[in-house]
Structures are given as C-alpha cells and as structure tokens.
Amino acid sequence: MIRLCSIDELQDPGSKGFHNERGHVFAVRKGDQVYVYENSCPHFGINLEWQPDQFLDSEKRLIQCATHGAQFLIETGECIAGPCPGDMLTVLDCEVSEGVVYLK
C-alpha cells in the first residue's frame, strides 16, 4: 500500500493531489468517506486542477475539471455535466487505517 496522507490533511469536504509510483492521483474527503481517483479527465486525458489540490467546485459538492468545466459526483466519479456526461473518472482502491489514507 502507498501512504497518501493523514485524513486530517483533507478538509471536509476537501481534496488533495499526489504524485507517486501510480502516477497523478487525488483524494476527496466527504464526511467520514475518502475517495481516490486518477487525476485524468475522461474528456481529454488532462489533469483536472489548475491550482494545487483544487479538484472541487466552488460549493465543494462536485469534482470539477478546471479546463472544460465537467462535473463529477464525488462518490462515484460519474460525469453529470459538461462535455463528457456519463463518462467516469478512474476509481482507485483506497483504505483509511488509524487516521491515514492509503492507496491499495
């Protein structure tokens, strides 16, 4: 497993990007849940954020691609608005153990 961060480093709701041997990934926290995705928009295959760690829309309810405005559900990674409706972010298996977020 790859250690990403302490869960306390993620705001609730909030997001944080990482680069490791698995590539560019990001984690999103919503309540007690943490979701991890590949940092790649299904529309163009580019990173989602312009500013470090800013993967959520202004209301922190959806994941948003900064380039094209595509919006994705935090819980599933499904695109619900923008240029690629129905497409999915690539979900990565993660685990929170003793307050630390790990990529499996």
Rank of each mutant, 00 (worst) to 15 (best):
D32C: 01
S58C: 11
G82T: 11
E38C: 03
P85E: 10
P42V: 13
M88N: 14
T90W: 00
M88R: 11
C94L: 06
C41V: 12
G69P: 04
G82C: 07
M88C: 14
H19S: 13
E21D: 07
R22C: 09
C65G: 07
G77V: 13
Q71R: 15
A66K: 01
E78L: 14
Y35L: 02
E95K: 14
T76L: 05
G77S: 09
D87E: 15
T76A: 07
V25C: 05
D57C: 04
A81K: 11
E38G: 01
C79W: 05
R29T: 11
Q51D: 06
D53Y: 04
L56Y: 05
M88W: 06
H19I: 14
Q64F: 01
G69T: 13
C84I: 09
R22N: 10
F55D: 02
I46H: 03
D32G: 08
L62K: 13
E59Q: 13
L92M: 14
Y35P: 00
C84Q: 04
L92D: 08
I63M: 04
E95T: 15
F72T: 10
H68M: 09
I74V: 15
S58H: 09
V28D: 02
R29K: 10
I80F: 01
Q51I: 12
E75R: 12
E59F: 06
H19K: 10
D93V: 14
F55P: 00
Q71S: 14
Y37C: 12
A81W: 08
Q54N: 09
G23C: 12
F26K: 07
E21P: 00
N39M: 07
Q51N: 04
T67S: 06
I63H: 02
V91A: 07
I63N: 03
L62P: 02
H43K: 01
G45R: 00
G77L: 07
I74L: 10
V36Q: 01
W50I: 14
F55N: 01
E78M: 12
G86E: 09
G77M: 04
A66L: 02
